[in-house]
Amino acid sequence: MSDSTRRSLLVTALAAGVSLAAPRPAAAEDDQPGADERPKKGDLLVFSEGEHEGSLIKPGDLDLGGPPLHAWPKDPTSSVIRSGSRLNEILIVKLDPGELDDATRAHAADGIVAYSAICAHAGCPITAWVKGSEIDKDVLKCMCHNSEYDPRQGAEVVFGPAPRRLAALPLAIIDGSLTIAGSFIGKVGGAQPG
């Protein structure tokens, strides 16, 4: 099942299940303190979509070579999921550590790397994991305007109009849990030049 299909199924379930009764849990979480704050060192990661939405992502949930999982940070103390801003959505992908450049490997945990899911061009969500237009490897691709990022090279731009790489999020594995090891490196979100 593709990533987007999994997401779709979940949204159906959500819409069918809760829209008539209580406010959506996500909306409630948005209003909680810290829900729109950027990820912090020590935050955990939870699925932002799919059948396991809201549950913790463990290293074993990732398949080597992708596709990426979409995640929100979660404050382990307050249990607040930081889904209050779309700028907090994160892409996590597990790659062969030998494929990563040194700087990328330094932020990775056992080959698992994390980046902002928001394209640096016009702020669209990055949804695709496809063969690059100009490199023969799978890349993170924004389908709005075709910007492509190589997650092995710190998500540098390898195709399209994006002016800069995606913001990276350092990871660590602590007590078997995938954990955020620092703040975003680089700017999150689209460009507003001029």
């Binding site: 700028l87 928001i118 016009a122 702020g123 669209c124 709005c144 979100g189 689209g190 507003q192």
Partner: peptide, 14 residues
């Protein structure tokens, strides 16, 4: 005039 667009805006057609 330069509008300050929101940081989280996504522009399919900028």
């Amino acid at each position: 005039y330069k509008r300050q667009l929101p940081d989280d805006l996504f522009q399919l057609h900028p």
